[in-house]
């Protein structure tokens, strides 16, 4: 990434040949009047999306045959950069001949894929991906007008990243299942935030309702709550599914004391000795249990050999493989 980023390239070099050709020569650019619609034999639908003040605006014209709901003719007008014009043009091409219900299923991903020169190379650079989103939005707008319903009703899920069409549900699930901790990881797993970046945090190109930073923080907080709750439940019922390593320090201490009380202390006390736990620390993979011998154990030859191994092995067996017992 670093080498690539140092000398900025021209975004134009990343436009596919198809995008460039459509920019130079859009095929479906134009307008449809009421008279045209009458002649073609359908209902004229005109929908606008975007705004010139934001840098992108598109107007979509459809003639829909009311008997069949088929889009008989379609045209667009667009204020925007080359990729906006090319995306609008491609979107119109994809609408034509489809029913309105089929057309609302066209997504910005379909539009972008249709503009690729070869299947594996994106048609536009990441920061231009949002241009194709507008094509998708204007279709929903037009369909809503035609059916007399709100454009939002075609969206059954909340889309957080429009460029990559990643839903809120997907994000929450992926973060949880894969234990994701950073925005970069979310982008690697889902592509959300890889394109125009508006959805990462407030202050980007577009204002959003949901931002990845907030979703991540919320899900992580929820996961932490759940973790603590599981451990607490497990300790109360004695059927913990949470591992020893997952427990809080307080819980680890309690659990360790329980094991020592049950399996170790009785033996030591028989010999007039005892131990006391001083601290428990997580040291990378190891869990270090610091303890002190008391009574007859102090100075006993076996305290640094046999007894120590016995204590450590018991804790390993009952609690966690990675426990080390360190007398001080």
């Amino acid at each position: 990434m670093a080498f690539e980023d140092l000398i900025g390239g021209s975004i134009w070099d990343e436009y596919s040949q198809k995008v460039q050709d459509l920019m130079n020569n859009p095929q479906n650019q134009g307008e449809i009047t009421e008279e045209d619609a009458e002649r073609i034999g359908g209902k004229l639908i005109v929908a606008d999306f975007g705004a010139e003040s934001c840098g992108d605006a598109v107007r979509l014209y459809w003639v829909v045959e009311e008997k069949t709901n088929i889009i008989k003719e379609a045209k667009f007008k667009s204020f925007g950069c080359g990729t906006a014009i090319a995306s609008s043009d491609t979107m119109i091409q994809l609408c034509k001949g489809k029913t309105v219900d089929e057309a609302v299923k066209i997504t910005n991903i379909d539009v972008e894929h249709a503009m690729r020169d070869n299947p594996d190379t994106p048609a536009v650079p990441p920061q231009k991906m949002h241009c194709s989103v507008m094509s998708y939005d204007v279709i929903k707008k037009a369909a809503g007008q035609y059916k007399g319903v709100d454009a939002e009703s075609f969206e059954t899920e909340i889309i957080v990243c429009e460029c990559a069409r990643v839903t809120l549900g997907t994000l929450q699930e992926v973060i949880k299942l894969n234990d994701l901790k950073t925005i970069e990881q979310i982008t690697d797993y889902t592509k959300a935030g890889a394109f125009c970046k508006s959805c990462i945090r407030p202050g980007g190109h577009e204002e959003k309702e949901y931002y990845l930073v907030d979703i991540l923080a919320d899900v992580r907080a929820e996961m932490e709550q759940e973790r603590l709750k599981n451990i607490a439940d497990g300790i109360v019922t004695g059927t913990t599914t949470a591992t020893f390593a997952d427990m809080t320090i307080v819980q680890k201490l309690k659990k360790t004391e329980e094991v020592i009380d049950e399996f170790i202390r009785p033996m030591l006390i028989m010999d007039g000795g005892n131990i006391e736990i001083i601290d428990i620390k997580q040291e990378r993979a190891n869990i270090d249990v610091y303890m002190r011998y008391m009574g007859a154990c102090v100075g006993c030859a076996s305290s640094s050999t046999g007894t120590l191994f016995a204590i450590e092995n018991t804790l390993k067996e009952k609690l966690d493989e990675n426990i080390r017992v360190l007398p001080i």
């Binding site: 859009p26 449809i32 009047t33 009421e34 005109v46 598109v58 107007r59 007008k77 667009s78 014009i85």
Partner: peptide, 15 residues
Amino acid sequence: AISSSYAYTPKNHKS
């Protein structure tokens, strides 16, 4: 000619 700012607006269409 391509621009939506100069596009035809039908009578009953409010943008």
